[in-house]
């Protein structure tokens, strides 16, 4: 048990608790809830075990599903995000991202922001596609995705920089 594992377990529990206690109950304009719990997947170490990430994302999504009575939509969206994460790293930070030391939770650069943005959009669009489950309501799906993405982005970046303020 090294400190990274403990940090990640703590992050898992903390983000889950905050999601269930606070963010699921916001209901801005009656239907917008942010989902900053996916920060766990984004902040998972770059060179950490991939199987570990997939499994923990699955259970993270499943527990959120349990609290929200939403079947398995969060689990599916989280697993897909966890699987696609290396691709998004490549897209945002360049091919040789594994040799750089990527720290998401530092000063907000365009690369970091684009990574967070792509991840959040991917997760939310899968989430609403599966939740609404009807192509005739595609406008509704896109509208909800857009609003929730904006809300989640604001909350997520706030959380990152509140907890770990960048060095000047």
């Amino acid at each position: 048990m090294n400190s990274t594992v403990i940090t990640n377990i703590a992050r898992f529990i903390l983000l889950l608790a905050v999601q269930v206690f606070i963010f699921n109950r916001i209901n801005l304009f009656g239907f917008i809830n942010p989902y900053p719990y996916i920060l766990f997947i984004l902040l998972y170490p770059v060179n950490g075990s991939k199987a570990g990430l997939l499994l923990s994302s699955f259970f993270l999504g499943l527990i959120v599903d349990m609290f929200l009575n939403s079947g398995g939509v969060h689990a599916a969206a989280c697993v897909t995000l966890a699987y696609l994460r290396p691709t998004f790293f490549k897209f945002s930070f360049g091919i040789s991202y594994e040799y750089q030391t990527i720290k998401i939770n530092e000063r907000l650069t365009p690369e970091r922001f684009s990574f967070i943005l792509i991840s959040v959009v991917t997760h939310h669009i899968i989430l609403y596609l599966l939740e609404i489950f009807s192509f005739s309501l595609i406008l509704d799906i896109l509208w909800r995705t857009l609003l929730t993405t904006v809300f989640t982005l604001i909350i997520s970046t706030t959380i990152i920089y509140l907890i770990k303020p960048g060095k000047q």
Partner: peptide, 30 residues
């Protein structure tokens, strides 16, 4: 990794489809 991903995705998608079918009780509820 791909197989594990497909397995987990399969489980979650089957849960989703189960929750969308009308006369079946869902397995993951509050």
């Amino acid at each position: 990794i791909l197989l594990l991903f497909l397995l987990l995705l399969g489980i979650s998608l089957s849960l989703v489809i189960q929750s969308h079918s009308y006369h079946r009780s869902r397995s993951v509820t509050s």
